[in-house]
């Protein structure tokens, strides 16, 4: 073998050693999570806090994103221990899954800042997003502007679309004329540039736009926590069968400890 070949082998051997050593040294049990991009910021905070507690010390985490549906299919196939979901269980979901509710999140109706609509009722939302019965802002009670309405929503595959359909539209799909954006941020951006736009986003994406009261209640963390605000959805940790071992301990800590509640309470609604 030439000298170059030997050198290459040596380098390869060194690299593989480096890759193996930490895995051996760690010897911690790894909990894997994949799924919803909406839940991701929350689960990162929770996991990094839990591994500092007495019970959590023995565990490590590997957390990936991908969307609610990815998480659900991953956990159903046994690829991860927890699938994170921002939508409720659906008909097409694989059997044998347990949806453990961990927190709640508010969905807000937003308009352009130049259209400071104060309040919107469920009936009006249905007339805009389903019909469309209302196509002009002058038809919307209390709207300060007139002109055509540009409804902006999410693609059918998103958890937010699913929650909006179930909570605001009474289980009916939004019309196909509604723009189907692929993320919360794109909806926020579109409403920000379009003075006639109206859209729906997670509470965390409401800067730079006008947040509309829904059925007379402001979309805030406090109103969502007290259940006065109607547009609240749940975040889930999905497991195959009832959670066991480390996963059970982790979910138990998330749903019951005061520390976890405090973390959830920063941007989301705790269960208790």
């Amino acid at each position: 073998m030439s000298r170059k070949g030997i050198r290459l082998l040596a380098v390869l051997a060194a690299v593989s050693l480096l890759a193996v050593v930490p895995a051996v040294a760690q010897a911690k049990k790894i909990i894997t999570i994949s799924g919803s991009t909406s839940v991701y910021p929350l689960e990162i905070k929770l996991a990094s806090k839990w591994i500092k507690t007495k019970k959590g010390k023995k565990y490590g985490f590997k957390i990936l994103q991908g969307g609610s549906n990815v998480g659900i299919s991953d956990v159903a196939k046994g690829r991860v221990s927890i699938g994170a979901s921002s939508r409720d269980p659906a008909n097409g979901d694989p059997g044998g899954l347990v949806f453990n509710r961990i927190a709640r999140d508010a969905i807000c109706i937003i308009t352009n800042p130049s259209n400071p609509l104060g309040n919107i009722t469920q009936d009006t939302i249905k007339k805009i997003f389903l019909g469309p019965t209302f196509t002009d802002w002058s038809q919307v009670p209390g709207a300060p502007i007139s002109g055509g309405i540009d409804p902006i929503g999410r693609a059918a595959t998103s958890g937010t679309h699913d929650a909006f359909r179930n909570i605001f539209l009474g289980g009916t799909n939004q019309g196909s004329f509604v723009a189907a954006k692929s993320s919360n941020g794109l909806v926020q951006q579109s409403v920000q540039t379009d003075n006639r736009g109206i859209g729906y986003v997670s509470l965390a994406f409401t800067s730079g736009v006008n947040v509309v009261n829904y059925n007379g209640v402001a979309c805030t963390l406090r109103n969502a926590a007290s259940f006065q605000y109607g547009g609240v959805r749940s975040f889930y940790f999905v497991t195959r069968g009832a959670p066991v071992g480390g996963v059970k301990k982790f979910i138990g800590w998330v749903t019951h400890s005061n520390k976890a509640n405090k973390i959830i309470g920063t941007d989301w609604v705790p269960l208790h």
């Binding site: 019909g131 196509t135 002109g147 055509g148 540009d150 409804p151 902006i152 540039t193 379009d194």
Partner: peptide, 25 residues
């Protein structure tokens, strides 16, 4: 944003309201 703010007339937007949103996209 430029298309929405400067090139698309309000009347054009109204004419197709409820069918397609003319907001620059």
């Amino acid at each position: 944003k430029f298309f929405n703010d400067h090139l698309i007339a309000q009347s054009a937007k109204d004419s197709v309201a409820g069918v397609a949103a003319l907001n620059g996209f």
